[in-house]
Simulated assay, not measured.
Amino acid sequence: MTNPVVVGVDGSPSSLEAVEVAAREAALRGVGLRLVHAFGRTSVHVPPGMPPWNPKAAGVRELVDGTMTEAERRARTTAPDVEITRDVTVGEPVMVLEIESRTASLVVVGSRGLGGFGSLLLGSTAVHLAAHGRCPVLVVRGRPDPTGPVLLAVDGSPAGEAAVGFAFAEATLRGADLVALHAWNTWSESAHEGYGDHLSVVVDLERLQEEEQRLLDETMAPWQERHPEVTVERRLVRSRIRPALIEASQEAQLLVTGARGRGGFTGLLLGSVSQALLHHAHCPVAVVRGKE
């Protein structure tokens, strides 16, 4: 059986929006949709000595049933032909989703919620899941342009290859164009990642630009040969990475990035660029971990 799309549900407007996005993703992939709700230690208040979740607690079952019923209704309205399953479990939501990611093709979460799967921008849930999930993680945020392209952050790193492949697959499924954006400057932004030297200024700007253009072309060429159906714009900009991608995301329907780019600490699972995009992009962000 093909791995399903998994979505975290907590009943918040953000998570219900994530359900609709996840249903569309499942329909595009031709796979099932799995709705997951988890009770962490702080999700439900019960008397001392009782289990973390007591189905007979006043209003708890009704609340959960109502939440999951509404989520399923949204999903069926969005994608009537998708097979939908539910799971309500006890456990810290971020850990539950991390476990779910081991058998999922994609995990989808909202950007704000009620304190379980939600409050992503208020805490570290999205960052943790993007860093440790075993499959791509899609955080639903911003106001995407439904007619816009898929925006790919190109860094040229070996770990970034997985993000390139995911972006081409998404562009194919959506029938969208692909904008491959690579930002460069006269000093390495990896200095902000804890590696590099602010004094390592490159004097020969023309030569540097040619090298960065070559990196972009070499990264994209083999993938374009495999996906001739995708129209690709290779966009080389002289700018800091984060503001360039955040600005470009205003006209995109999806932003795809690797978890960690060139120059980061070895073993660092999620770079500052990816974290910044999760917090500030104007459209949904897919974080794709590659082989470290």
Rank of each mutant, 00 (worst) to 15 (best):
H192A: 14
H192V: 14
E193R: 05
E193G: 04
G194H: 02
G194I: 06
G194R: 01
G194N: 02
D197L: 08
D197Y: 08
H198R: 12
H198C: 03
L199Q: 11
L199D: 12
L199S: 12
S200E: 14
V202I: 08
V202L: 05
E206W: 11
L208A: 02
Q209Y: 11
E210N: 14
E210D: 15
E211G: 10
E211I: 13
E212D: 03
E212I: 06
Q213C: 01
Q213S: 12
L215E: 10
L215M: 12
L216T: 02
D217G: 07
E218F: 09
T219W: 04
M220A: 09
W223M: 02
R226Y: 12
H227Q: 00
H227E: 00
H227T: 00
P228T: 02
E229Y: 13
E229W: 12
V230P: 04
V230M: 09
V232I: 04
E233R: 11
E233N: 03
E233Q: 13
R234A: 11
R235L: 09
R235N: 07
L236M: 07
L236W: 06
V237N: 05
V237H: 04
R238K: 13
S239P: 10
S239H: 15
S239W: 08
R240C: 05
R240A: 15
I241Y: 00
I241N: 07
P243I: 04
A244K: 05
L245R: 12
E247P: 00
E247S: 13
A248I: 04
A248V: 03
A248S: 09
E251I: 00
E251H: 11
Q253T: 04
Q253C: 04
L255T: 06
V256P: 03
T257K: 08
G258M: 06
A259D: 00
A259E: 00
R260N: 07
R260I: 05
R260C: 09
G261A: 02
R262M: 14
R262W: 01
G264K: 06
F265I: 14
F265D: 01
T266W: 09
T266R: 11
L268F: 03
L268K: 07
L268R: 13
L268Y: 04
L269E: 02
L270Y: 11
G271F: 10
G271Y: 12
S272F: 09
V273W: 09
S274F: 10
